[in-house]
């Protein structure tokens, strides 16, 4: 998005287009080379090879013959109950976290955009989780959810609701919601900051005009604020969704996919396939399926938003 927005700028900075001499062009390529070479060798090439591996029977170990197997991996995936299970969990996680993240972040951004006391404190607190390594966020919430020494269970004890005490991350029914809450906590700051920036770009005059016309707070939000920040909303929710679907470290530390696979996100599943069982080809095929699904879901989402905008 930024790239597109930036293009006219480039054109302007360059002034009237001059024909560029051959030596100039060589100079430019020489400047770009140190960056492009590593990206091609260690990012573009591995990605292409990774996609290809998804159509082979590659396995761990030295001197293993790799042969092309076409769609065999995908046929196997179709019949793999563990995969479907993990896929369902991944969707629940990604959609759940993205939606909650957005709703909570929008609420917080609206509050931070007002003249409220403690706004400074809230702004600082809203950024701290962003600054934490995912592993530390995982550890932090493990401490909060700890069955004996945890903040949450102690809170329920203090308010006299001992019946609610449970092993949050170890119980089949609470593990996934508990993990989703952590995902929301970890990702909310970035979304809040982006939405707040969007809100601050809404012209005051629009609000004042609407207020003079007697529009209620809700109507002003619905008809002035929301349309004005719609592009920002679409951008950040799309990115959040991609990041959440591909997230790994947080849940790896929290539950490692347990209990009984209840929080086995697709990325964790693929990691286990590749590095515990050594099924490189199968894991890569899983990665391919995930890309296709993400692109398809995003396409549906973006098309609907576009149609709404027209």
């Amino acid at each position: 998005m930024t790239t597109v927005a930036d293009r006219p700028d480039v054109a302007r900075a360059d002034g009237p287009r001059r024909a560029r001499s051959r030596s100039d062009r060589l100079g430019i390529y020489l400047l770009l080379l140190p960056s492009l070479l590593p990206i091609v060798v260690l990012s573009v090439f591995p990605l292409v090879r990774g996609i290809y591996l998804g159509f082979t029977d590659a396995r761990a170990g030295r001197n293993v013959e790799i042969s092309f197997t076409g769609l065999a991996n995908y046929r196997e995936l179709l019949g793999d109950e563990l995969f479907w299970n993990s896929f369902k969990i991944g969707l629940l996680w990604a959609v759940g976290v993205t939606v909650l993240q957005f709703v909570l972040a929008l609420g917080l951004a609206l509050l931070l955009n007002q003249q409220l006391r403690f706004r400074g404190l809230a702004r600082v607190l809203a950024v701290v989780p962003w600054a934490m390594p995912p592993v530390v966020v995982g550890i932090l919430w493990k401490l909060v959810y700890h069955p004996d020494a945890g903040l949450l269970n102690e809170f329920f004890h203090r308010v006299g609701a001992d019946g609610l005490r449970t092993n949050w991350l170890g119980d089949f029914s609470t593990a996934l919601p508990a993990v989703i809450l952590v995902g929301v906590w970890a990702g909310m700051p970035q979304t809040t900051v982006v939405l707040l920036a969007g809100l601050q770009g809404v012209p005051r005059e629009l609000h004042e005009a609407a207020a003079v016309d007697g529009a209620s707070t809700w109507h002003r939000f619905r008809n002035v604020t929301l349309p004005a920040i719609a592009p920002v909303v679409v951008a950040i929710t799309s990115l959040d969704f991609i990041w959440n679907f591909n997230s790994f470290g947080l849940v790896y530390v929290l539950t490692a996919g347990g209990p009984g696979g209840k929080t086995m996100l697709p990325m964790l599943f693929a990691y286990e396939e590749a590095f515990r069982y050594g099924n490189y080809g199968y894991a890569a095929a899983l990665g391919n399926v995930m890309v296709v699904i993400i692109v398809a879901l995003l396409a549906v989402y973006l098309r609907r938003r576009l149609r709404e905008a027209n």
């Binding site: 998804g54 591909n246 697709p266 990325m267 590749a274 990665g287 995930m290």
Partner: peptide, 8 residues
Amino acid sequence: PFVLLIIP
């Protein structure tokens, strides 16, 4: 996803 990159 990282999984596609990490193996190669």
